[in-house]
Simulated scan of single mutants.
Amino acid sequence: MSGPDALTRSVLADQVKERLLEAILDGSYPPDSRIVETAVAKELGTSQAPVREALRGLEALGIVEITPFRGARVRRLDVAELLEAYVVRSAIEVLGARLAVARLTDDDVAAIARIGEDMRRVADAADGRALAIVDASFHEKIMSLSGNSTLLRVWRSLEPMSRTYITLVGPNSDPQWTCGLHDPILEGIHRRDADAVVAAIERHFDQVRERLAGSLAGVAEQQDSAAQPATGTS
């Protein structure tokens, strides 16, 4: 198919993909749950074609898995895979930051500062879900200012997977801690100091990986303990 109809379906599929991604990240579709094409199409008032295309897009991102005759389900991300994604994302953001700092205007610095203020506001409100959204927009703004569309596209392919750590850690997340990780980045951007921004980004991802590994290990231990049969004493 080509022409206006193909363009319309592609745009609609992107919109459906974003809606589904939001539902996955907010826990409406937990890991291992099925996503039924017909149900999604009915809920969103569309045909199954854009839903099917959206699911293929989420499969490409590693968020869902599609199996013949069984349909789509939300992937339960492997801890090692998630940590690997942070390593790659850190390297990408370091490059993006170096390119962006060299191009920053006063308006750019002000725009990033406003996102930082939004992040502090939602952190003070202890709204972890809103913080995840603002956090993503902060990093995306820096990547978009790099002026490198290929780099931005690669970053966008990893960001949804990285963002899931907030929903995986859940009640153990700390909005104030997450917000504070960005303060050194903001300070470096204000000074237009590329080395300071890069060092702050690298520390940011090192600390997130350490916290994520520890949090998920704790969750796994709790699940293992709950699964152990109770033993009595005589």
Rank of each mutant, 00 (worst) to 15 (best):
V109L: 08
V101M: 09
A91C: 03
V79L: 13
L95K: 12
A132G: 12
A125S: 10
V109N: 04
E93H: 10
S90R: 15
A85R: 10
R103T: 05
D107K: 15
A102L: 05
D124A: 15
M119H: 01
A72H: 07
D108G: 06
D127A: 13
A123W: 04
V109S: 02
M119G: 09
A91S: 11
A110D: 10
A113H: 15
A110R: 15
D135W: 08
A132V: 02
G96L: 03
I133N: 00
V122I: 02
F69M: 11
V134G: 06
L83Q: 04
A72S: 11
Y86Q: 06
E93Y: 09
D118N: 08
A97V: 05
A102N: 06
V79G: 00
A123R: 08
E81T: 08
D78Y: 06
E84W: 12
L77T: 03
D127M: 08
D106T: 09
A126R: 15
R98I: 01
R121G: 00
S90N: 09
V94F: 00
L99G: 08
R76D: 09
R121W: 07
V101R: 08
D106Q: 10
R76W: 03
T105P: 10
R120D: 13
L95P: 00
R89S: 11
A130G: 09
V109H: 06
R70D: 09
L95Q: 11
D124S: 14
D127W: 07
R121F: 13
M119E: 06
R121N: 05
L77P: 02
R76C: 00
R75C: 01
V79A: 12
D118F: 13
A123S: 15
L131R: 03
D135C: 11
E93I: 05
V88Q: 04
D78Q: 11
I133H: 02
E117V: 13
G96V: 02
T105S: 15
V134D: 06
R121T: 14
V87F: 12
E117K: 13
D78H: 04
D107I: 04
A100C: 06
L99M: 13
A91M: 11
D78V: 04
E81V: 01
R120F: 04
I112V: 15
D118M: 14
D118E: 14
A110P: 04
I112L: 15
V88D: 07
L82H: 13
A130C: 01
V74D: 07
R129E: 08
G116Q: 02
V87I: 10
A80S: 12
D124K: 08
E93M: 14
D135F: 07
V74C: 03
D107F: 07
I115R: 14
L82R: 04
L83E: 03
V88Y: 10
A97Q: 10
V94K: 09
